[in-house]
Simulated scan of single mutants.
Amino acid sequence: MTKKRILITGAAGFLGSHLCDKFIKEGMHVIGMDNLITGDLKNIQHLFKLENFEFYHCDVSKFIHVPGKLDYILNFASPASPIDYLKIPIQTLKVGSLGTHNCLGLALAKKARILVASTSEVYGDPLVHPQNEEYWGNVNPVGPRGVYDEAKRFQEAITTAYHTFHGLETRIVRIFNTYGPRMRLNDGRALPAFIGQALRGEDLTVFGDGSQTRSFCYVDDLVEGIYRLLLSDYAMPVNIGNPDQITLKEFAEEIIRLTGTKQKIVYKPLPQDDPKQRQPDITKAKEILGWKPKVSRAEGLKITYEYFRSLPKEDLFKLPKEFESKR
């Protein structure tokens, strides 16, 4: 039987690399694609020896060509952390718009089913809690986070338009905070920032008073949810995340206990438009996909901490890489 062929854009990123692993494990031929502006080939180097994996160094915002048939496309090409999209705002908007348009056009030409990676950031600083898929969000389009939030909102809109106008098979996943091995220590998000500070012997920085909440989902759980959504018959957005929320102050205290460090928590002003609450309503995922997270935060954090602790010492002190292109 001919293997199913799947294109995964953003393949060298944190989530993309785990998705490559998953679909190879499920017996598919995986074509990875990444321009490596935030991704890292180290995340997928273990796959290069496999005959069921191939890689294209390509910017999906410009052009996509993949020879042969495609059964599925996973579009995960986008910066995903504030430290990235604040440095490359134009590229963030282009990959969410032009890049998504190119992926949808390829899916249409190949008659492939496409799943696009949206985000809980489409809800902005939410006025509804927990956030369900029917909530339209509270987003500042001209604030610093607008380049990411609106790129993702446009991505959902054009994906839905291709579904309704062209009859394209589309899936939309709204991803909440996810963590696990292969995260970048310097990507600016709370979990790697806290662990990195602890490992360097620095005080842990909490923005605001620490009362804002986050809900952290272990990467294996997220990947399973995405896999089930891709193979489902549901075309509207679905939240995938862990509803077990925690305040950032409590989370910093958890990291201090986990790492056994003696640092204290220091407080800095809250960035503009930083969401005060983030918790997914996963009723749809449970009912439609039969999915719910299985890995507890304690278990997932232990695995993630061991991963970060195993990194070369120089990685702990590596500053975020600068991006050459400002286009």
Score class of each variant (00 low, 15 high):
86 L>T: 09
87 K>H: 12
88 I>P: 00
91 Q>H: 11
94 K>C: 04
98 L>N: 14
99 G>W: 03
100 T>V: 15
105 G>I: 09
105 G>M: 14
107 A>F: 12
107 A>G: 06
107 A>R: 10
107 A>T: 09
109 A>Q: 15
109 A>R: 14
111 K>D: 13
112 A>G: 00
114 I>P: 15
119 T>D: 06
121 E>I: 08
122 V>H: 02
123 Y>G: 09
124 G>T: 00
126 P>Q: 11
128 V>H: 01
129 H>L: 13
133 E>W: 09
133 E>L: 07
135 Y>K: 04
136 W>V: 15
138 N>V: 04
138 N>P: 02
139 V>A: 04
144 P>L: 01
145 R>M: 07
150 E>H: 10
153 R>Q: 09
154 F>N: 04
158 I>D: 03
161 A>Q: 01
162 Y>N: 03
163 H>W: 06
168 L>K: 02
173 V>R: 00
173 V>L: 01
173 V>E: 01
175 I>H: 03
179 Y>M: 07
180 G>D: 13
182 R>G: 08
182 R>D: 08
184 R>S: 04
187 D>T: 05
188 G>M: 05
192 P>S: 02
194 F>T: 09
196 G>F: 02
197 Q>S: 15
199 L>P: 13
200 R>H: 01
200 R>P: 05
203 D>A: 13
203 D>T: 11
205 T>P: 00
207 F>E: 03
208 G>T: 03
210 G>M: 01
211 S>F: 02
219 V>D: 02
